[in-house]
């Protein structure tokens, strides 16, 4: 969902940032397994990266805030494997498999895991880009009930297109399993005063990566 607690930009009250000296990659063994399961199950191709994000954003707000990063990953993954019919609720409750798995088209092998492969999100453009660097744009004031990558703090704001980043998979569609629906992607920069009001520091600018459907000419 869109207007939930994951959209944290500009919120107050979370306290100071506390860097940890000599931080380990993982803080517990279960975090390693969650990380690996997330990657391994992602390789099945049954959901998109945005579908994964959406399942975490859809956690009840209190559960989201109460969970550490990898616990959120775990809770999202647990929901996703059930929602996709891969695992039954009864199996989660039992803590072990009660039936054989369904057949998957793709499964990550050891050889796959050894290879360094990277996902690409750029796609052939269905049409010309509507905006170019230097154009003034206003972000739309939208509140879709489903996944979006337009943060609340940057909605309805006047900004400047700084760069055209190509045509990319549109997260708002991909999260719903509705296909790539490629859209032009732009870096749009805002003065802090546009985002936070006249009291804001004039020496600060903030940019977002904005898909064309988020933008209107200004």
């Amino acid at each position: 969902m869109t207007n939930s607690v994951h959209d944290m930009g500009g919120m107050h009250g979370f306290g100071s940032v506390e860097p940890e000296a000599n931080e380990p990659v993982f803080h517990a063994d279960w975090e390693k397994r969650v990380y690996a399961l997330q990657r391994g199950m992602g390789a099945t191709g049954l959901w998109t990266i945005d579908g994964g994000r959406a399942s975490i954003e859809n956690l009840p707000p209190l559960a989201y805030l109460d969970a550490s990063y990898y616990k959120r990953w775990f809770l999202g993954l647990e929901r996703r494997v059930v929602a996709h019919g891969l695992v039954g609720d009864d199996e989660i409750a039992a803590g072990h498999a009660l039936r054989p798995g369904i057949r998957l088209n793709r499964k990550m092998s050891l050889e796959d895991a050894k290879k360094r492969s990277f996902a690409h999100f750029d796609r052939p453009a269905p049409g010309a880009a509507r905006f170019k660097a230097g154009d003034q744009v206003r972000t739309k004031n939208i509140h879709p009930p489903t996944h979006t990558r337009l943060p609340r703090y940057a909605r309805g704001k006047l900004g400047t297109v700084e760069a055209v980043r190509g045509c990319h998979v549109f997260p708002d569609s991909a999260a719903l399993g509705a296909g790539d629906n490629p859209q032009w992607l732009y870096t749009v920069v805002f003065a802090a005063r546009e985002l936070w009001g006249e009291e804001a520091d004039p020496s600060i600018k903030v940019s977002i990566e904005a898909f064309e459907p988020y933008l209107s000419p200004a």
């Binding site: 199950m41 494997v81 989660i92 072990h96 498999a97």
Partner: peptide, 10 residues
């Protein structure tokens, strides 16, 4: 163990 037993992950 569920995901492994069901053959989804190696």
């Amino acid at each position: 163990s569920i995901l492994t037993d069901k053959g989804y992950v190696d």
